[in-house]
Design a binder for these strands. Sequence first.
DNA 1: ATCCTACCTCTTGCATACTAGTGGGTCAAG
DNA 2: CTTGACCCACTAGTATGCAAGAGGTAGGAT
Lengths: 239, 239
Amino acid sequence: MAKQPLISMRPESKGLSYDRPAASQIFGFIRDAIISMELLPGQMISETALAQQFGVSRTPVREALIQLSNIGFVEVLPQRGTYVSKFSMEKILEARFIREALEVAVVTQLATNPDEAVRLEAVDACEKIIADQKTAAADDDALAFQKLDDNFHQTLAGFTQYPRVASFIEAEKAHMDRVRNLSLHVGGQYKRILSQHAAIIKAVKTGSAEKSAAAMSVHLKDVYNILEVIPQEHPEYFI
Amino acid sequence: MAKQPLISMRPESKGLSYDRPAASQIFGFIRDAIISMELLPGQMISETALAQQFGVSRTPVREALIQLSNIGFVEVLPQRGTYVSKFSMEKILEARFIREALEVAVVTQLATNPDEAVRLEAVDACEKIIADQKTAAADDDALAFQKLDDNFHQTLAGFTQYPRVASFIEAEKAHMDRVRNLSLHVGGQYKRILSQHAAIIKAVKTGSAEKSAAAMSVHLKDVYNILEVIPQEHPEYFI
DNA sequence: ATCCTACCTCTTGCATACTAGTGGGTCAAG
DNA sequence: CTTGACCCACTAGTATGCAAGAGGTAGGAT
């Protein structure tokens, strides 16, 4: 009996390209499928099934799954199976803690950067993003808005010149994006998010480390407020 | 011709235990060998050689190496070889940035913890460690001192109740420990480190987030000061 | 009806074999 | 002596097969 494919193969991604390691490509596919909730929390994803679907052997799939387990997206239970991680309040709060620590450090460093040109460059780049976000909000385009939100935080992190900082923030943010993709509450938050982003940039512009850090803190705490309702709406995805 | 073993097999660790995945054990062995500078920066470590040495196949070794490359300890060059990462100022400063961000957040959270009992418990635990460190310093036991230093920072992080925070801090600290193990400058720093640790705990005790964060910042910046001399002493290990 | 046991199937962990690409060394041509 | 082409040894990437353990199920004993 033919089983349902675990991951829908979109036209543009039917196969794997030959010029990059298969394991790395598979890692990306599965990660995206998990973030977009195509693979649901608690769902079993066996190495064999995925291998057949990608048309490769178990080896690269297995290596991809090991990496996914490192970033907490799947859990490998020896001799029992591999499962998409469920949400837990603790893990989400942990991700928030790590993210806030890093992002506060990012804006603090930026705000106190003695080279004012760099600061202005960052402010300019972020203000452009905020302008685009206003457009997305006016169009009620939640997806575009969320991508620009990503862009905003990644741009800020990029100015540290420390690539791993940006990638850590991205990884921790991804856990939250997963939760957020459970529902589209985002719509009602456009205005608050926009004003918070603007407040962060304004504080950076004035060069105040304290105000920048505080503004970022407020923003992140607010974003995670949807955790008050989501677990009740989807208890099946929480531990 | 028999080649030199890459990793010296100490008596207590001749073989792998059977009750834990081999890949995970091998990961630990290689990581420790890299931190202790038994495997030198720039050195090639082939999967085949390691596999023979551990008496296993390439598969678990390979999986261990993938994980080590994730935390920046080795670099895998396809079809060319796997190498122990060299130091670079950028990477070390990046590790410091991440570590400082996290550790500052840790003491901030602890200092502002409304439950005073928790704060006192943490203070007590850390003061015990400081006392032990004083003993180690008096005995000029650099190794014990360093382990207690680890213990100090891990204990603080443990009070966040977020295990990944502690493990991130440990990982970032490891990069610095590698550098530090290049030479034993540590001896001359006992007093400064001790007083800085004491200052951190004192600030936490008073419940001041700002003072705690500042004390931690000062401590970390100071620790990384040996970077002023090490690269000149061992340029061969730096990019 | 309930519990225990044997077994069968599925899982991941590991071993082995093969593929393809890189780089060095050799040797011949200029 | 220099340079270029070829070959060979070695590398990581992937495929495949086997081992060992977990868990469900059927069937028999109580």
